[in-house]
Amino acid sequence: MAIRNYDRKKCNGCGICVACCPMDVLRIDTAAKKAVIQYPKDCVACWGCESFCPQGCFDVSPERGRGELVSPY
């Protein structure tokens, strides 16, 4: 999957990852006050969560949940 690692322990529930995700992959578990990966396969590797998470919870890889990137060549 594109989000290859999510450190739930570090998550403080600020919701920035949920806000910046263009594919609605991430949601907030309001009871636990933690982000959850609701639709892992829909990640398009935009690196938004990894770039903006103030706690550094996310590690994103370029491979998508579905399929490799099409080569430009």
Binding site: A19, G48, F52
Partner: peptide, 8 residues
């Protein structure tokens, strides 16, 4: 916005 406003 389809994302959360502020980070989109």
């Amino acid at each position: 916005d389809k994302c959360g406003i502020g980070w989109n």
